[in-house]
Nucleic acid binder design. Sequence first.
DNA 1: CAAACTCTGTGCGGTACCGCACACGCAAAA
DNA 2: TTTTGCGTGTGCGGTACCGCACAGAGTTTG
Lengths: 248, 248
Amino acid sequence: MIKQTQRQIRNRLFAALTPSEFAAIAPGVKSVKLELGQPLHRAGEIVEDVYFPETGFISALAVLSDGYHLEIGLVGAEGAAGVSVILGSNTSYSEAMCQTGGLAWKISTASLRRAAAEHPHFRELLLRYVEVFHIQVAQTAACNAHHDLSQRLARWLLGAHDRSGVAELSLTQDLIAIMLGVRRSTVSVAAAQLQRAGIIRYQHGLITIVDRVGLENAACECYESVAGEYRRLFGEHPRDLPPLPTAA
Amino acid sequence: MIKQTQRQIRNRLFAALTPSEFAAIAPGVKSVKLELGQPLHRAGEIVEDVYFPETGFISALAVLSDGYHLEIGLVGAEGAAGVSVILGSNTSYSEAMCQTGGLAWKISTASLRRAAAEHPHFRELLLRYVEVFHIQVAQTAACNAHHDLSQRLARWLLGAHDRSGVAELSLTQDLIAIMLGVRRSTVSVAAAQLQRAGIIRYQHGLITIVDRVGLENAACECYESVAGEYRRLFGEHPRDLPPLPTAA
DNA sequence: CAAACTCTGTGCGGTACCGCACACGCAAAA
DNA sequence: TTTTGCGTGTGCGGTACCGCACAGAGTTTG
């Protein structure tokens, strides 16, 4: 179960619980370490556990029959991966995959459903997050059809920056290319462009975000549009997630 | 309120209700005529009513700041437009727009929420549909990034065919181009290709689907993938929606 | 019937991204 | 240090779609 007191918790869905709700749910929650590349849910398979990221983030990926994996949404401490089990289905449409190492809270599908049934406020919180996630996916659909890669790359980096809480991201261009559904070399060109503009620095699997505002200007509207919906429904901007805990 | 007896209802969400649930909900339901091009919900505005199509279909559109409208999902008698209000938000992320004339059942947001609260089976039905719709949108995101227009056009026509229940669709290429987020002339080329293959016939705003199986072969996997998820959660394939009532 | 309008087919130059391939630089292992 | 490997930058021909523009065919209106 969760050892931290609630005020130490970074995940916004848990942080928004009342103390009594938190106390009731905590026993079913386990802390787990997320490893880079680790699959948490597989397309078409049963969702055993739902993951509430504490640090790091998780990609939701659509899997096409030719083996292509393509990101449809990003989940960090603002939400949870696999939360749509509370809509009723037991299996996952998408694949959930860790993109960075980090920590998450894990709760079994059955426990989550029980908690949601017993605590209407928690249930309502989860449903609201389902809606925000849905909006993110919808915006991605439009973005994929209409915006070009340099904008989409900037948008993606902003999302990763918000959720990771650090300016240095361990990410190869290869991985980003898969997320965005383009060739690696196309990412290379777009990234070089951002680097020349002094917005990011790229060095062997390590991206540093140098100029956050510049990155926001380079991105398409889709970042701010989704972030705005999150703020509308949750009252805080994803940019303002709590900082990472300093190492004890 | 609904005058038909329940067994005459084509909409699958209403048809799946138990007789007593149906009787309880019916008084809040009004029949409305859908006109081509009529907007039912506007992006960012309050959702006053939720629409359960009986014939015809409705597009959900993302609106980008440059004015582009781009379809993210299609709703027909298998579902309802605006149903995500049961997740909690009062406003609509997307725009809902009629693509054909037809009939729909309309219920106010407040009545729908009350009905969902009082009838768990109805609520569970609605949530399951929210999930299917979400899957449709997610698949569209991947499809937009990865499949080319000829496949996407075929996919779209299949969806329209399923929902309209007739082989003749009143649709200009201009309208389809907006839905798919491409130029009209690109649609023209792809449609001419399908026509030469004897799959459809196109004549001044009227598409006739000649070879349904051929159309399925011409489409990308995305059609069958979403349809399969629908069947998994609702037990019937969208292709098998009840036929239109014959004129009395 | 003719005129006005709507819708579809086609063409041209331009661009974004593809698939593939290869060279270079940084980094960890021998 | 040298070697090996991984990650990044770049180039080339090809393709899908863009923006724009115009002709022709079908449909409605006068």
